[in-house]
Protein backbone atom coordinates (compact mmCIF):
# COMPACT_ATOMS: atom_id res chain seq x y z
CA UNK A 1 0.00 0.00 0.00
CA UNK A 2 2.83 2.36 0.84
CA UNK A 3 4.39 1.50 -2.51
CA UNK A 4 1.20 2.54 -4.29
CA UNK A 5 1.17 5.69 -2.24
CA UNK A 6 4.74 6.57 -3.16
CA UNK A 7 4.12 5.85 -6.85
CA UNK A 8 0.97 7.93 -6.77
CA UNK A 9 2.61 10.88 -5.11
CA UNK A 10 5.50 10.80 -7.57
CA UNK A 11 2.97 10.83 -10.41
CA UNK A 12 1.32 13.86 -8.83
CA UNK A 13 4.54 15.79 -8.89
CA UNK A 14 5.89 14.84 -12.31
CA UNK A 15 2.65 15.23 -14.26
CA UNK A 16 2.60 18.30 -16.44
CA UNK A 17 -1.14 18.35 -16.95
CA UNK A 18 -2.75 19.68 -13.84
CA UNK A 19 -5.97 17.66 -14.02
CA UNK A 20 -4.02 14.44 -14.31
CA UNK A 21 -2.05 15.46 -11.28
CA UNK A 22 -5.32 16.11 -9.43
CA UNK A 23 -6.55 12.63 -10.38
CA UNK A 24 -3.38 11.00 -9.11
CA UNK A 25 -3.65 13.09 -5.96
CA UNK A 26 -7.09 11.58 -5.39
CA UNK A 27 -5.69 8.08 -5.86
CA UNK A 28 -2.84 8.84 -3.47
CA UNK A 29 -5.32 10.03 -0.86
CA UNK A 30 -7.32 6.81 -1.29
CA UNK A 31 -4.19 4.77 -0.59
CA UNK A 32 -3.50 6.91 2.47
CA UNK A 33 -7.03 6.02 3.57
CA UNK A 34 -6.19 2.35 3.09
CA UNK A 35 -3.20 2.81 5.38
CA UNK A 36 -5.52 4.25 8.04
CA UNK A 37 -7.58 1.10 7.62
CA UNK A 38 -4.50 -1.02 8.23
CA UNK A 39 -4.13 0.90 11.50
CA UNK A 40 -7.65 -0.35 12.31
CA UNK A 41 -9.26 3.07 12.30
CA UNK A 42 -12.27 2.40 10.12
CA UNK A 43 -13.91 5.77 10.72
CA UNK A 44 -10.88 7.79 9.71
CA UNK A 45 -10.54 5.65 6.58
CA UNK A 46 -14.09 6.38 5.45
CA UNK A 47 -13.80 10.07 6.30
CA UNK A 48 -10.56 10.21 4.33
CA UNK A 49 -12.34 8.76 1.30
CA UNK A 50 -15.39 11.02 1.60
CA UNK A 51 -13.55 14.28 2.26
CA UNK A 52 -10.14 13.90 0.69
CA UNK A 53 -10.91 11.65 -2.25
CA UNK A 54 -14.43 12.90 -2.98
CA UNK A 55 -14.39 16.60 -2.20
CA UNK A 56 -10.91 18.09 -2.23
CA UNK A 57 -9.82 16.96 -5.75
CA UNK A 58 -13.08 18.31 -7.18
CA UNK A 59 -12.24 21.64 -5.59
CA UNK A 60 -8.75 21.38 -7.09
CA UNK A 61 -10.09 20.65 -10.57
CA UNK A 62 -12.48 23.58 -10.34
CA UNK A 63 -9.58 25.71 -9.22
CA UNK A 64 -7.39 24.47 -12.09
CA UNK A 65 -10.05 25.51 -14.57
CA UNK A 66 -9.87 29.04 -13.21
CA UNK A 67 -6.17 29.17 -14.03
CA UNK A 68 -4.30 29.15 -17.30
CA UNK A 69 -4.33 25.62 -18.70
CA UNK A 70 -1.02 25.75 -20.53
CA UNK A 71 0.76 27.12 -17.52
CA UNK A 72 3.52 24.51 -17.76
CA UNK A 73 3.94 24.47 -21.54
CA UNK A 74 4.50 28.06 -22.56
CA UNK A 75 7.08 30.44 -21.15
CA UNK A 76 5.87 32.88 -18.53
CA UNK A 77 5.98 36.66 -18.95
CA UNK A 78 9.58 36.79 -17.70
CA UNK A 79 10.68 34.13 -20.15
CA UNK A 80 11.03 31.47 -17.47
CA UNK A 81 8.86 28.36 -17.33
Amino acid sequence: MSAFEVIGSILVVINKRMVRAAFWLAMTLVTIGAIYLLFQSEFVFLIQIIVYAGAVPVLFVFGIMLTRRTIMDEPGPEGGP
Binding site: V19, A22, F23, A26, F43, L46, I49, I50, A53, G54, A55, P57, V58, V61
Partner: peptide, 17 residues
Protein backbone atom coordinates in the same frame (compact mmCIF):
# COMPACT_ATOMS: atom_id res chain seq x y z
CA UNK B 1 -23.88 3.32 5.42
CA UNK B 2 -20.84 5.60 5.59
CA UNK B 3 -18.98 3.19 3.31
CA UNK B 4 -21.80 3.42 0.77
CA UNK B 5 -21.61 7.22 0.92
CA UNK B 6 -17.87 7.04 0.39
CA UNK B 7 -18.44 4.94 -2.73
CA UNK B 8 -21.09 7.39 -3.91
CA UNK B 9 -18.83 10.37 -3.32
CA UNK B 10 -16.07 9.15 -5.66
CA UNK B 11 -18.29 9.54 -8.72
CA UNK B 12 -18.24 13.38 -9.03
CA UNK B 13 -14.47 13.36 -9.53
CA UNK B 14 -14.76 10.66 -12.21
CA UNK B 15 -17.51 12.56 -13.98
CA UNK B 16 -15.61 15.82 -13.81
CA UNK B 17 -12.45 14.26 -15.22
Amino acid sequence: ILFIFAAFSLAPLGILI
